[in-house]
């Protein structure tokens, strides 16, 4: 089998907008890498190791996600299931958990498998209620049968918080892949997911950059001392404009729907970041793990996504997608 024609046919079958978007990300990362190299050469006294680690990790994440998006919904569901698994494992490892809860931890992973099973089976209604209703009731019941009542309510809440953020909310990103072609999507279902990831991560970076450049007034001093009003507002504006101008390229959104996403999504990203910071501060760690060099843990990278994914999904469902 000739590799080149197969590859050409594979790429020709992809929506051109998606390929252009991915190419744009690759160029952006290339520029970032170039800047880091130049900085390292110009200022040998300063260490840019973390910056270079960060960019190297971005390459890995982009390659993994781009590969999955191009390969189709099956691969994307598997990749998001793995992301959810790593995030949930980080969460349960740091949260206060009782010795007796080991079977409940195992059950939480089974809930993850079932939830992603519903995505794979394209059972939207099952997915919608499974974690918020049935896992919400079932896990505490299992914990009650395990017989330990010390710290029961706290532990039940901990499990549920972890499952909803790490599995249920992130799963919505994967569920977008099940949007049918009949929805007239300008860059396919993968374009929807790509755009969510692009604007969420762009928002993270933009808030960071605006904060570094102009940040003076702290916005959440007890939770996240590095976050400032200037960073938040700058990121909001920049991401809002990006969504407004690029949204029609990758999504069926237009007019009011697009405006609502442009205004709310950057706020949701900020909210996810700050809320997860509060959790980390409560637990007493800075990073949830060292799984992604330069970034911290999976949950450190995906914290804003746990808020933006369900918001984006529901706004798409409300304004544009008739299936959901």
């Amino acid at each position: 089998m000739a590799i080149l024609p197969t590859l050409r046919a594979f790429l020709a079958a992809q929506p051109p907008a998606l390929l252009a978007g991915l190419a744009g990300v690759v160029i952006l990362l290339g520029v970032a890498g170039l800047v880091a190299t130049v900085l390292t050469a110009l200022r040998p006294d300063k260490s840019y190791l973390e910056l270079r680690q960060r960019i190297a990790s971005w390459w890995v994440m982009v390659a993994l996600l781009a590969g999955a998006l191009l390969a189709g919904w099956q691969a994307t569901v598997v990749v998001f299931a793995l992301i959810s698994f790593m995030a949930l494992r980080e969460f349960l490892s740091l949260a206060p958990i009782r010795r007796e809860d080991r079977p409940a931890i195992l059950a939480a992973y089974l809930v993850l498998v079932a939830a992603y099973g519903f995505i794979a089976a394209d059972r939207y209604m099952f997915y919608l209620v499974f974690i918020p209703v049935w896992a919400f009731l079932g896990l505490p019941f299992l914990m009650a049968m395990l017989g330990q009542t010390r710290g029961f309510l706290t532990t039940a809440a901990t499990f549920h918080w972890g499952l909803v953020t790490c599995v249920y909310n992130l799963g919505f990103a994967a569920f977008l892949m099940r949007a049918p072609d009949a929805e007239r999507l300008p860059a396919g279902a993968a374009g929807l997911v790509f755009f969510l990831l692009l604007v969420t991560e762009f928002n993270d970076v933009a808030q960071y950059v605006f904060g570094k450049l102009f940040g003076r007034r702290k916005i959440a001093p007890t939770v996240s001392p590095n976050k400032t009003w200037e960073g938040f507002l700058g990121g909001w504006l920049a991401t809002g404009l990006l969504i407004w101008f690029l949204g029609p390229v990758f999504t069926p959104l237009a007019g009011l729907g697009l405006a609502v996403v442009a205004v709310t999504l950057p706020v949701a990203g900020f909210a996810g970041d700050v809320t997860m910071s509060a959790v980390k501060r409560d637990i007493g760690v800075k990073d949830t793990s060292h799984a992604i060099p330069g970034h911290g843990g999976v949950l450190d990278r995906a914290d804003s996504l746990t808020f933006t994914a369900p918001l984006y999904f529901h706004l798409l469902a409300l304004f544009a997608l008739s299936k959901f």
Binding site: L94, R102, L106
Partner: peptide, 14 residues
């Protein structure tokens, strides 16, 4: 926590 002494089923935790 992953596999305490005396347990047989391991549970994934970091």
């Amino acid at each position: 926590r992953v596999l305490p002494k005396g347990e047989t089923i391991p549970v994934p935790l970091n």
